[in-house]
Design a protein around this nucleic acid. Structure first.
Length: 191
DNA sequence: TATGAGATCAACT
DNA sequence: GTTGATCTCATAC
């Protein structure tokens, strides 16, 4: 088994459709809390579900910058959601982190989420950011430096794809990816 | 198990 | 004024 390697910015400097499935099984830590990525979705500026579809605004400015940075936005006025910016600067594409399997910093995450149920810690984009302590204060941070720590996956895994969820535009694009058989998805995959 | 309301903010019409 | 890449809690079946 090879030793896990850190993900560098160059990892993200490719098509979102290459990066998103490769993030499944990778490890995401934020200030030492986190775990294994089990669910993500890809967003590309060419389709209307993406925040960048209608051009640059103060909120989505990070998406228009170089790959390898975090785009954090407020969702439904309450939650925070975190994306990893991909492709070249200006392409405005990103991968939304939707669920992780908690493995490190469990006590901290249980305290932040106020639940004893491990499946409710990080199974959903809003839950994930609350458990890891990610907020708007972290918008624009580099992904290859503290407090982020991203490690390449090791070993063979199976990735499943399906339709994105929680959106009303471009619902037909199968750009949701998951770790096959994981118990920590926010919702089941159809296929 | 399923549906509905409330929380509350940035962008857009 | 409305909508949305959401979650929780309450109430109903």
């Amino acid at each position: 088994m090879p030793k896990p390697r850190k993900l560098r910015k160059s990892f993200f400097d490719r098509s979102v459709h290459q990066v998103a499935p490769e993030l499944i099984g990778a490890t995401l830590l934020f200030n030492g809390a986190g775990g294994i990525i089990v669910e993500v979705e890809a967003y590309h500026h060419s389709e209307p579900a993406a925040h960048s579809y209608n051009g640059r605004t103060p909120r989505n400015a990070v998406m228009f910058g170089p790959a390898g940075y975090a785009y954090v936005y407020r969702s439904y006025g309450i939650h925070w959601c975190v994306n990893f910016v991909c492709e070249h600067a200006g392409s405005a594409s990103a991968v939304l982190m939707r669920a992780i399997e908690p493995t490190e910093g469990l006590a901290t995450m249980h305290r932040r989420r106020r639940t004893a149920d491990a499946r409710l810690l990080c199974s959903g984009p809003g839950r994930l950011t609350e458990a890891l302590g990610i907020t708007h204060a972290h918008n624009g941070l580099a992904l290859d430096a503290a407090p982020f720590e991203l490690r390449e996956r090791t070993g063979d895994i199976e990735v499943v794809a399906g339709l994105r969820i929680g959106i009303t535009k471009a619902v037909e694009l199968p750009w949701r990816y998951g770790l096959a058989g994981s118990r920590f998805w926010s919702k089941p995959f159809k296929s």
